[in-house]
Amino acid sequence: MRPLLGLLLLASLALAQRVTLGAYGEAGYWTPSLELAYPLSDLTLRAQAQRGALGLGVERALELGPAGRVAYGALAAGGAGGLGARAFLQGGLGPAALEVRLAYATLPWKRLFVGWTDPAGLSGSLEGRYRLSPEATLGLALGYGDLGLGLLPWGPPAWGTEGRYGVRAGSWSYTLGLGFRQGPYALVGWRAELDEEGTVGEAVLRLGAANRLEARLYAPLGEDTLGLRLALGYPFRAAWGVAWGGLSLEGAYDGSYALWLRYAWETGR
């Protein structure tokens, strides 16, 4: 039986368009992780596995050229004594963009796959953006669950809503907003293309009932992009990530540590 399983695993790796292998660790627990993507006509089939849990999903996208793109998909996962299912729709068409995510699981999603931080039960989010003019964009988000900032849940699951108004001035853009999540808060954001190579810097500060700073920097390095991101919160929490080429390392701290190292191979299929 074992040789057969080994052959099946090798065949599934060989046929995949993208293979991502990883190792995840947190206090008292570690697991290898495997993510596979298979192109099948207009569909992309996905599989993800970790110790004692397996998830299978399918995605499809409608490509509309410069006018936009709409992608949607669903995934079911089982193992670790529980089951879960999730679906998403994400896309933009002309001046409007919409992102909807819905998830349900009988246990915290992290036990089904370490990359998910959604809580047990029902969770989800709805976010819409509309371009009022070439320079101004209005955004509104509503959701229940985790903030999805890193490897560890960012506090207990909660309802949250946020409104944002973004203005672009050349290659810089600024965002102002108000939100409510266990209390009201305000946000201010900045994003800029910093040079002719396409380097992008971004920072968003939220103050009030939520206190956190998120910063990102993406710069070309060789043939690939170096991506750095950091989220710091008060009371103290942190999530960070470094990615370059297929290699990525993520970490998080919320009183305990978590670390996830991954490498992705693109086969070009």
């Binding site: 490509e63 509309l64 050229g65 410069p66 793109r69 994400q90 896309g91 933009g92 953006r129």
Partner: peptide, 21 residues
């Protein structure tokens, strides 16, 4: 195809792609 609103770059083989819209 770069889409500003969703900040996505969609890369397609030329034979398959159309500059639609």
């Amino acid at each position: 195809n770069y889409l500003y609103l969703t900040n996505q770059l969609v890369i397609q083989p030329r034979a398959k792609a159309r500059i639609e819209g």
